[in-house]
Each structure stands twice: as structure tokens, then as C-alpha cells.
Design a protein around this nucleic acid. Structure first.
Lengths: 340, 340
DNA sequence: CTGAAAGCGCTTACAG
DNA sequence: CTGAAAGCGCTTACAG
């Protein structure tokens, strides 16, 4: 191997070393037929001697594809996001595609910047867990032929393929579960109300209450930033006072976490609790945490499948897929309200 | 915007539309100086009209960089991996680099395939959490000028930059903590013993025992695949029989998890427990889980920093960085052994 | 200030 | 079977 540090041999170098034409090298590298054994051997020897490895970026420029897709998440370090990521990666690998990942950190400006950077690289397709409230900036990219699939939340301002959890249905089932265990005064703590997921889960809460003929007190719902202190205040407010709620529905994993921490620190009588999103040690808590679990593997797989169908030429109108959630009863949602 | 579906305008198209030379378009797009305001305006109008967006992949082919790095993990959906990923992504973003991520799924063949695929794309650099036992396949890539940093575990067969947790020191501190609380018979359950992390943590265990003058019984250490059933058997064996251990040190997050599940199901007297790696709800368990926590943010940041220093021309000999761990006492590691 | 030519490392389309 | 030419979309180096 005679490659100098920092200088990679090219097909041209291989061709010169083997004393053949460039195209013959290309044929051998790509295992195309129609090269005599003797020629192929000479080329292979030169490849080994020079330590040649094809530059796929150059190859793909000519080909017109990049054999890569991008996944834009809120935060890759969040368990839900990383589970999505693994599912998307596995589908991409099946298609011979590499995966870019990026975290918007809930910043719409960063989301836009990253999405456009991926498009500028000409990724074959883009999957976005959106944060921003206006995605029209992606319209030119989509029109130009870069398929975009929205995941977990719908796009705002454009019609595109979308894969969502059954947020309203899941929340409805979770709240109905609490009602089924005798609760009448149930609180809802969510994150930012303008986010689709929060709005839908709140809708599910209201539907379950309405279906059971239960009134919803003005003060029983509390939405705002996912800040532990704010969630703690909300829990304290809803479960305190003269007529406290007897059960809580928490709108996502981080809110559930913050609520659990607050409740653990305040050893007064605990409300029943059902949380949206599963947590890793949920079954080992005392009581076990009852959750409405999302299915990130199915969500990610569905988004990737649609993307690759679009890449294969599927030109049907935008699709919207809703993935079911699953109620997992473990104890915290099955405690009855205090008698009297 | 007149771009037809699937056909993107190029600089050539813009040049033709604006009636200027290609290089003038390039100058405007790259905000180079030396273009008259009138020319620039004409170009900008054409860009807007055609919906032109520079193809960065083509640009980077000419430039010789790809402004992308790759992070090869064991499994992006693992919390430790995804935390590393976020840290690396943030450092990459500071450098204007996009990030490829890939999961080897503990398959050395897959690791090799992915690593070489990233190199074939000519990523500017590669960070690898290795699974395989021989990394000499990366030697030609490194020689050719692609810097590689190993993270969490060292490379086998090549000298490269490496960023590790203080595995032995962390385990030693965890086991010493148990000894400090009166335990004399302490078990160690790890994953595959040929993995550097497992070997080092086992070494730390032995050192702590030796430092305290305590013998280590042959049967007190148990290593093998991270399979919940195997871990459960190990826990049952170590904590059962006529002379059970009174405390356990578990070698990583998944083993701790499996051990906790087994102990929760077997309501006999619980051994004291310290686990390597922190878990999200660890503080809410009863008792709280005492852990030796790694610092994935610092690990990922350190690996990325070294990589970018190499890219900036640092030619010093390979470095090895060790990141400290932190003992977090929460209850499970502070229970004394049964008296008598 | 402006632009035609050559080239990044490959593949495509086409002759011999 | 083999290879010279042209081109992917851009930048670099160099004239005008």
C-alpha cells in the first residue's frame, strides 16, 4: 500500500498503474460483466497496491441520488426520539441508505436551518418531527422532488405524508381508564397547548370526560412549558385546595417524570396517575406506573416506508397514518379515589 | 417559481436566466465580493424565480471535504448511545458539520460495513463505539487521512485516539462503597468478558476487594450475554444457596435493569445493589438505585473535540482520554448486610 | 468587475 | 471486450 498520508488514489491512478482505461477500472470496481479475467486481475492488483476505495460521494453526484436520508428530531437523546431513529435507520439500511440525524432542540429556526442543510446536500428524502409552526419553507424542496414525511406531529401550511400516534384516542382511553376506576375529578397536565400532540391529547381527555357525562372544571387542565418547576406547581395546585382532583393524566414522558418527582417529595395522599408515553423503569416503581404507550418502532418504520415508496415513484396524494397506542395498567392508574 | 417537479435548477440555469456567466452566479451565491450591485440583483432575481438552491454535495466534491462526520454506535436507541450522539451532534454543528449516525447492533460485520461505507462517502472523520475485536480494517482509511476516534472502548490492533470512561476506577469506587457499608461477600455480574468495558469493571471490582483484604470467591463473578434470563439466573445463584452474597455490583445499565426485575419478582431479602450507569427513574425506585454514573455528554464532547483538532491539522501521537465517573448514593447501595 | 476553461472523482452514452 | 469523450454541479486558477 503506497498511498501517501492524506492523498487518496483515484480510479485514474488505478487505471494508470494497471495500464488500462478508466472505464475498465470502473467496470471491475462495480463488478460489471464483460471484462476478461486477465484484465480484471491486473486492475485488482493495482487497487490492492494503491489501497484504492471508490469515492461514493463522487459516484452519487453522477448518479443523481445520494443514497442517504435525513431524520430531523426534537432531541436525539430523548428515548422516544432515539427509538424512532433506530427504526428509521433499520429501514434505511435495507435500502442501502445512510442516515443523517439532527436535533432541532425545539427551536424552529434551527429546524429550518437543519432541514434546508439536508436538502442542500440533496438527501434522497427527509423525515421531520416538526417543532416550528410554519413549514412552507419546505414547499420548494418538495416541489423539486425531495419527498418529506412528517412524523409525530403534522406539518403546518403544507400537505405532506404524515405519521402520527393516535394521540386523542390514547388520551381518551387513559382517562376512561381512570373514570372506570371510580374517578370523577381528573386533572390534565400537558406541555405547550399549540403543539398538535398536546392539543390532541387534551381533546381526548375532554372527550372521555364528556362521554362519561362528567363536567370539566376550568382549573383542572394545566398546560405550559415542560419545566419541572412549572409541572410541580401544577400538580400541587390540582391536587391541593378544598376540592382536589383525585387523579391526574400527564401529557408526555417528561411531564410524567416531573409529576412523579413532585409526588415522591410530597408524601401526602397520592392521586391516581396515568401518563402518556412509557418510561423504562415504569414497572418497577411503587406503585407501577400506568401509561398510554406510544409505539416508536412502528411510527419510525411507517414514516420510512412511506418515504421509500415515494422515492420508488409513488405519486398518490399525501397520506396520513395513525398508529394505535396501548394502555399498560401497572398500578398507579388503578387506585380508587378516597371514599367520601 | 418555475421549477418542474423533480428537476432542480443549477447554477448554469441561473446564469442563463440572468444572462451572466456561471462564475458570477457562484460569486453571488457564496457572497463573494467584487460583483456590482446591478449584476447581483439580476442574479438574485433569477435565483428566486427558478427556486435555485446550491447543491452542497457537488460543491463539497470540488472542495475536497464533505462537512460531515459519522458516529458509529452500538445502538442509537440505547440511552447512553443517544446521549453520546447529542453531544457529538452539538460539537459538529459548531463546526458546520452534519452528522451521520449508524448502529452496529453489536455485530462486528455490520460495524465494519458501516464504517467503510462512511469512509467511502469520505466523511471528514469518524467516531466509533467499537463492537468488533479487530479494527485493522480501518488502517488504510486512517493512513489516507480520515481521522478516527474510538469512544467508550479502545480499538483493537491499531493505535488511535481513544476516549473512555474510567471504568476500573468507577467500579472500584462502587464496590468500595458497598464494603464501606459493611459488606464482605459481594458479587459482580457483567456482560461479555472480552469486552474492554466489562474487563475493566471486573478489574475495578477485584481491586476494591483486594484493597480491603477481602477474598473473592470463584462463584461470585458471573459474566455472559446481556440476556435478562441469564442475568436472572446469575442473581438467583449469587444471592441463593447456603452462603449467598449480601451485595451485588451490576456491570452496566441493561444488566442492572434485568437484575432489578428479577429482584422485584423475588420478594426475599434483597441484597444491596450498586449499578454501573445511571437510569432515568433510578431515584424514584424504593429504595433509590445507587449507581456509578458515566458522563456521556463529556465523553461525546471529548471525542468530537479530538476529531476536529485532528481535522485542523493536529498531528500529535494518538491520545487517550479517561473521563471520570460519579458515584450517586440513593439507597440501594447503603443497606447493611443482614446481621449474623 | 467578469467569465471561459479546467477539474473534483466518478458514470453514462457511445464508438471501436 | 475496451476505452476516449462528455457530463454530474459546483469551485479553482487564470485570463481579460
Amino acid at each position: 500500500m503506497t498511498s501517501r498520508h492524506g492523498t487518496r488514489p483515484t480510479m485514474k491512478d488505478v487505471a494508470a498503474a494497471a495500464g488500462v482505461g478508466l472505464k475498465t477500472v470502473s467496470r471491475v470496481v462495480n463488478e460489471e460483466s464483460g471484462v476478461t479475467a486477465e484484465m480484471a486481475a491486473r486492475v485488482r492488483a493495482a487497487i490492492a497496491e494503491l489501497g484504492f476505495r471508490r469515492n461514493d460521494s463522487a459516484r452519487l453526484l453522477r448518479t443523481g441520488r445520494t443514497a442517504s436520508i435525513a431524520l430531523l428530531l426534537e432531541d436525539i437523546s430523548d428515548p422516544f426520539s432515539s427509538a424512532l431513529s433506530r427504526a428509521v435507520e433499520d429501514r434505511a439500511a435495507e435500502q442501502g441508505c445512510l442516515l443523517f440525524t439532527g436535533s432541532s432542540a425545539e427551536d424552529p429556526g434551527r429546524e429550518r436551518e437543519l432541514a434546508l442543510a439536508f436538502c442542500a446536500r440533496r438527501v434522497d428524502g427527509l423525515i421531520v418531527v416538526p417543532t416550528g409552526e410554519d413549514h412552507r419553507y419546505l414547499l420548494p424542496e418538495i416541489t423539486s422532488g425531495t419527498p418529506v414525511v412528517f412524523l409525530d406531529r403534522p406539518a403546518a401550511g403544507i400537505e405532506t405524508d404524515t405519521v402520527l400516534s393516535d394521540n386523542a384516542g390514547g388520551a381518551r382511553a387513559g382517562v376512561a381508564h381512570l373514570i372506570g376506576h371510580g374517578h370523577r375529578r381528573i386533572g390534565f397536565i400537558g406541555d405547550l397547548p399549540h403543539l398538535h400532540t398536546c392539543a390532541e391529547r387534551l381533546r381526548g381527555y375532554r372527550e372521555a370526560m364528556a362521554e362519561a357525562g362528567l363536567p370539566v372544571d376550568e382549573g383542572w387542565t394545566d398546560t405550559g412549558p415542560t419545566d419541572p418547576a412549572r409541572v410541580a406547581r401544577a400538580v400541587a395546585r390540582l391536587t391541593g385546595g378544598p376540592r382536589p382532583v383525585t387523579a391526574l393524566f400527564t401529557g408526555n414522558n417528561r411531564i410524567t417524570l416531573a409529576a412523579l418527582h413532585h409526588l415522591a417529595a410530597a408524601p401526602s395522599r397520592r392521586p391516581a396517575l396515568v401518563g402518556f408515553d412509557d418510561l423504562e423503569l415504569a414497572d418497577l416503581l411503587t406503585p407501577g406506573l400506568t401509561v398510554v404507550a406510544q409505539d416508536p418502532a412502528t411510527l419510525g418504520t411507517a414514516a420510512a416506508r412511506i418515504l421509500f415508496e415515494r422515492l420508488a415513484g409513488d405519486g398518490a396524494p399525501p397520506r396520513r397514518i395513525e398508529v394505535p397506542t396501548r394502555l399498560i395498567a401497572r398500578g398507579s392508574g388503578e387506585t380508587p379515589p378516597p371514599t367520601g
